[in-house]
Simulated assay, not measured.
Amino acid sequence: MTIRVVVADDQELVRAGFAMILAAQPDIEVVAESGNGFEAVGAARTHRPDVVLLDIRMPGMDGIEAARIICAETPSRVIMLTTFGQDDYVFDALRAGASGFLLKDVRRDDLVHAVRVAVAGESLLAPSVTRTLVAAFTSGRAVRPPRTELLTVLTERERETLRLLGRGLSNAEIATTLVVSEHTVKSHVSNLLAKLGLRDRAQAVIAAYETGLVIPGQLGDAEPDLD
């Protein structure tokens, strides 16, 4: 299967470099390049790519708004491009439907891997990145009351799987923690995503915090009261 990609970045050299790296892969085709959010949305609507690489900060329409439209109107997976450590909008991008993010100084092999991982529906958030994102989110925004009512549709195992996802664990690590097979974990993940109406694991991380399953700054996360 050929993975079709749109690359959107207002810096021509960055955009061209990413496109060149991806186009050199036998299983990846770059179907369009865009210099701003409006162009990125248009390219996504026209080409219906599997993945859109989308810079967060672009003139006209920024990457977050573009991601919101692309994720709402197309099945494309969106990967945000950012200079992490200076960008305060990563969490907003994930909430908009993005599947994860990459640093602009990403290594060649990691860029290619990320595109393939996004198509497979896996998470692009390493545990350390997850913790950093949540810390940035909670330090810059008021913490709202947890939406525990969302958890009532999940089984006990699905809630536990969501909690571990929120802490940044991989499928293998969740399987070890729960003493089950990776296949069982994949089933739990698939079920909880469907029940909560989530696109992927990145949005599951957000849900784990919004429902109170994971509490920023606490290592031992308690099960929230569902009553």
Rank of each mutant, 00 (worst) to 15 (best):
Thr138Asp: 15
Pro26His: 10
Asp221Thr: 12
Arg108His: 04
Val52Ala: 11
Val180Leu: 03
Ala16Gln: 14
Val51Leu: 07
Gln25Cys: 12
Val41Ile: 15
Arg199Phe: 01
Tyr89Ile: 00
Leu22Lys: 11
Gly168Ala: 07
Ser181Phe: 01
Val143Pro: 04
Gln25Ala: 12
Pro146Gly: 05
Asp109Val: 01
Lys195Val: 00
Ile3Gln: 10
Gly35Ser: 15
His183Asp: 12
Val41Tyr: 11
Asp227Pro: 10
Arg57Ser: 13
Gly220Lys: 10
Gln86Ala: 11
Leu165Ile: 08
Arg77Cys: 06
Leu226Trp: 15
Leu193Asn: 00
Ala194Leu: 08
Arg107Ile: 00
Gly168Met: 07
Ala16Arg: 14
Ala23Cys: 05
Leu111Val: 06
Asp50Trp: 10
Val112Asp: 02
Ile28His: 05
Glu122Phe: 06
Ala8Gln: 05
Leu165Cys: 00
Gly197Glu: 05
Val180Met: 06
Leu164Asp: 02
Val30Lys: 07
Arg116Val: 02
Leu124Met: 02
Thr184Asn: 05
Asp109Trp: 02
Ala44Thr: 12
Gly42Ser: 15
Val7Phe: 04
Asn191Tyr: 04
Thr211Val: 08
Asp92Glu: 00
Leu226Glu: 14
Asp50Ala: 11
Thr176Asp: 06
Gly212Tyr: 05
Val179Arg: 06
Glu122Gln: 07
Gly42Pro: 11
Arg141His: 15
Ala118Phe: 10
Ala32His: 09
Val153Phe: 09
Leu133Arg: 07
Thr155Cys: 14
Met80Asp: 03
Ala98Lys: 04
Leu124Tyr: 00
Ala66Cys: 15
Leu133Met: 11
Met58Pro: 04
Arg68His: 09
Glu158Asn: 09
Leu124Asp: 06
Val30Gly: 02
Gly60Asp: 14
Thr138Leu: 15
Asp50Cys: 10
Val14Leu: 12
Leu165Trp: 01
Tyr89Gln: 08
Gln11Met: 15
Leu198Arg: 06
Ala142Phe: 14
Gly121Gln: 00
Glu29Val: 12
Glu12Gly: 03
Thr138His: 14
Glu73Ile: 10
Ala142Thr: 15
Glu156Leu: 13
Val5Met: 09
Leu94Glu: 08
Pro59Leu: 07
Ala208Gly: 09
Arg107Tyr: 00
Val90His: 04
Asp105Val: 03
Glu65Trp: 13
Ser139Glu: 15
Leu53Cys: 14
Thr211Phe: 06
Glu149Met: 12
Val106Lys: 01
